[in-house]
Amino acid sequence: MLNNGPIGVFDSGIGGLTVLRSIIEQLPEYDYLYLGDNGRAPYGNRSFNTIHQYTWECVQWMFRQGCPLIILACNTASAKALRTIQQQDLPKQHAEERVLGVIRPTAEVIGQYSKTGHVGVLGTKGTVQSGSYLLEIAHFAPEIKVHQQACPMWVPLIESGEYKNDGADYYIKQYLDQLVNQSESIDTVLLACTHYPLLEDKIKTYLGADIKVIGQGDIVAASLADYLQRHPEMEQRLTKNGTRRFFTTMDDTPEFDNHASQFFGSTITSTFTDVREGCA
């Protein structure tokens, strides 16, 4: 029997809520289920195998909650786990369900923002080392020169709430300087981690007005809307009651709710879950 239920949105922590917020703004009628694997975050410095294992466990849990379609609103999971899930895991166990990522939709349009043809990409160590943005942008916009910069301290600072403090500015400026030093021609910078929009004001201040800073939320939301128009067989399986449910693998749900509400833009009440129960 085919699942009929909410759209699932997954992230290793709370950053994916910035994407969910944009999706809901464009597609408010659907039901949504959000899962943050905060108990095992951050993913950025973990191995391919570990990230695949964790992501697949979370995806299977969301399938068991009735989600027929899941968005990996996590660049690291999209870079290191999505291909294996789509090509190997789904055909074997969940052939009728779909899992989509955030890298391809972004790569399809990022070239439209740059006039110089030089784009900077800020991401986790895992996303940068995967080379996913280099490959995808080269496919859709081969004329674009991509400059990458890993920012390993940013997600821990954001997840802990320390990003608001002046001490965090040292790490923000450090990575931005390393990026812009790669090329004076960079005129567009992509925030290739869904946590980074919380640093957007500070990033814009240090980069200056001549460099555009691009987040992924609206891009991914527009891509999802287009996907659902092109795949009515999936769209018809999505329930439409306007509900939103939030889950986390961190047992301190009040702590999650406090930080998550800042990302989502309104108050969140979450439920703890152990995604490993019932995994194949």
Results as ranks from 00 to 15, higher is better:
219 I>L: 10
215 G>N: 12
221 A>Q: 05
273 T>M: 14
241 N>D: 14
228 L>S: 00
240 K>P: 11
252 D>M: 11
208 G>K: 08
210 D>K: 08
270 S>V: 07
248 T>V: 06
268 I>G: 09
264 F>M: 05
261 S>K: 04
250 M>P: 05
242 G>N: 14
266 S>M: 00
231 H>E: 14
223 S>P: 05
263 F>L: 09
231 H>N: 15
205 T>D: 15
220 V>Q: 08
228 L>A: 02
215 G>L: 10
249 T>W: 00
216 Q>I: 13
220 V>M: 09
245 R>V: 12
256 F>K: 10
217 G>M: 10
262 Q>I: 06
268 I>H: 00
256 F>A: 06
248 T>S: 13
275 V>T: 05
253 T>W: 06
215 G>I: 15
267 T>H: 10
232 P>Y: 12
234 M>Q: 07
209 A>R: 10
269 T>M: 11
211 I>D: 03
263 F>H: 00
273 T>I: 11
211 I>A: 00
265 G>C: 14
261 S>I: 05
236 Q>L: 09
261 S>N: 08
263 F>C: 02
265 G>A: 08
222 A>K: 08
269 T>H: 15
256 F>Y: 00
207 L>H: 13
254 P>V: 01
252 D>W: 01
218 D>H: 14
257 D>N: 05
207 L>W: 04
241 N>E: 11
267 T>V: 03
222 A>F: 15
226 D>T: 14
268 I>L: 01
249 T>N: 11
204 K>D: 07
235 E>Q: 04
259 H>K: 07
240 K>C: 08
230 R>E: 02
267 T>D: 11
233 E>Q: 00
251 D>F: 10
213 V>A: 08
